[in-house]
Write a protein that binds this DNA or RNA. Structure first.
Lengths: 341, 341
DNA sequence: CCCCATCGTCAAACCGCTTTTACGCTCGTC
DNA sequence: GACGAGCGTAAAAGCGGTTTGACGATGGGG
């Protein structure tokens, strides 16, 4: 009735457990004839090795972990996460490694989650939403849990990083808007504690030469709308707004339209992340695609390499592509930028 | 250097492994004094029980599984999945149970994934995207793997179901549009193999009395756009379109707008699932919120109950709320519905 | 005052697999 | 024809917990 064990298979094949194990793992040479008998017996009994027993004996869980500290409501509106996970899974699937996911709400819960991972739930983890000076870096190192950080970590660390150049596309976008005559360009950033939000905002300030029109949003539609309202109410209002993600950009664009501000004629709008809807809006939204799935694949590949003993390494994945679309496709309104150089 | 084991704790506390185990599990009474010594020792050594050893000995993984068969690209644009997972995690977090997730691409891989779950990776699973006459139902039963199905399964089964009434909000929505004078109402459905898509489409046909204006989409923005284009090109084009999800609805609405069709004046549009962006569009999109997080919580609670021995049960969660917004907020165009009853 | 039930702990037997050590066998070699 | 070298398999010792049967120490009841 209950599941067959390796002993049942061994008995059926007329060999010992060790032989069955070696037949599968290849850690010892086993004659073709014996192997065939073993496989036949396993097939016959529909034996599937117990992953818990295997994990215990081999001291590896054959699983990688991701712990996410996020408000469920925010998670629901996150376009990055599912695509990233899909990439992770794509890489994992080939190796029969599982993904164990944990969404937590507090720092304490997050620490416990990582401890559980270290206690055998996972062999390594991928850390997302990296903060500047993130506490997890020393913490994970202390646990001795292999990890890869998604984002550029500045401090010293023996953990792998998967970096992305967030600055270049921002500069490129600003240049594009400048070329069209825009001089009053605003930026609705993400929370500046995140390394990627910060990198984008910094690149913006550097490109524009001023932080006057920078606002700190939180990636939600509501905040995109609110900051847009504030910016459009300025006496000398911006003629272009660059948002740190598409959710805020779409909300902002819709708000502007609902107030009778025409996009792109009176206001150019650009987002970040290239949400699947962005190309289908009216007008289609200019955005920067960041290929989260690819980053998931790279991060996972990196982690598996770490686990295989190929020491921690930092890799940079070049995956941002500026998608110019209708929302920035008009010259700057002349009455707002009469003396554009 | 390596992690402390239960033996280390036992030695430090001057008791045996069994006592340590019982002190934590409570399966046997342990005196308060001894307990205190054990806990102190564990604390001191920073002992965290190995989850693989525990899984093996206790024959339970303390994990539940979700296997998703989906194209990564589709997953990326899925608004249901992250919210659902968030709900699952919310319920799991309280019990120290982990979630193991597997995204697969083929039937074979899916079967292997479930087998791995049954082989000790998870104690039970939640099956999403239920099809009519879904092969997984007998398959999971055959594996002896506890499972809860998200959706109404018609055939005989000893698995728990979490049902939702998809029909009622559709009928309500059609009634609303009728009241505004619409007589030519179209429906862009999801793949009809899915029980929920099918339920929505059937409710639509029943409410409208005809399947003439029903089209089968695939939940992507591209398909929403394509079907909208076809419908608007009809000689006697619809004055209202009801989409089976918001992604298609938003793409459809944007397409109409880009062709100069004013929403809602010339075309009323409604979606399903209440995407986080929907309320922020211009016009805001009428939709049916379905609270995926709540369904995640209910499904998980149900599964945990199953695991605790509270036999399979079917529960219905009443979570759909019609969100009437601007996209349906106009009387039907008179030249198209002159003789509306 | 003795007996038996209860409580608290110990010791040992697993759980199902991996890995190491040992050993018998078959060859090729000189 | 004895010998070392591989090769293939067996046997056993874990991995780090849980669970069960046994048992000494207490304490209450007859």
């Amino acid at each position: 009735m209950s599941r067959p064990t390796i002993s049942d298979v061994a008995r059926a094949a007329g060999v010992t457990k060790a032989t069955v194990s070696h037949a599968y793992s290849g850690h010892r040479p086993i004659s073709a004839a014996t192997k065939a008998r073993v496989f036949a017996a396993a097939e016959e009994l529909r034996w599937v090795p117990s992953s818990s027993a295997r994990a215990l004996a081999a001291r590896r869980a054959n699983a990688v972990g991701v712990v996410l500290r996020r408000d469920p409501a925010i998670l629901a509106s996150d376009t990055f996460f599912p695509a990233f996970i899909a990439g992770v899974e794509q890489t994992l699937a080939e190796r029969e490694v599982a993904l164990v996911l944990q969404v937590v709400g507090s720092r304490g819960a997050e620490e416990r989650a990582y401890q559980a991972m270290a206690a055998g739930r996972a062999d390594g983890v991928i850390a997302l939403d990296l903060h500047r000076d993130d506490w997890r870096v020393p913490f994970l190192a202390g646990l001795g849990l292999p990890a890869v950080l998604l984002g550029a970590y500045d401090g010293p660390t023996r953990l792998s990083c998967v970096r992305t150049d967030d600055a270049a596309p921002v500069a490129e976008l600003v240049a594009h808007l400048r070329a069209r005559g825009h001089t009053r360009i605003a930026h609705v950033a993400g929370p500046l504690g995140y390394v990627h939000s910060y990198a984008r905002a910094r690149a913006f300030v550097r490109a524009v030469g001023s932080r006057e029109l920078v606002r700190e949003g939180d990636f939600t539609a509501g905040s995109g709308r609110a900051h847009t309202a504030e910016l459009l109410a300025l006496r000398d209002r911006p003629t272009a707004i660059l948002y740190a993600n598409d959710t805020m950009a779409i909300a902002g664009m819709s708000y502007a339209q609902s107030r009778g501000v025409r996009v792109p004629d009176e206001l150019a709008v650009a987002g970040f992340d290239d949400d699947h809807l962005s190309a289908h809006l009216s007008p289609p939204l200019t955005s920067v695609s960041t290929d989260p799935a690819r980053r998931g694949r790279v991060a996972t590949t990196r982690l598996l390499a770490d686990l295989a003993g190929d020491g921690p390494r930092s890799v940079t994945v070049d995956c941002t592509v500026l998608q110019l679309r209708g929302s920035t496709d008009a010259p700057a309104p002349t009455h707002h930028a009469p003396d554009a150089r």
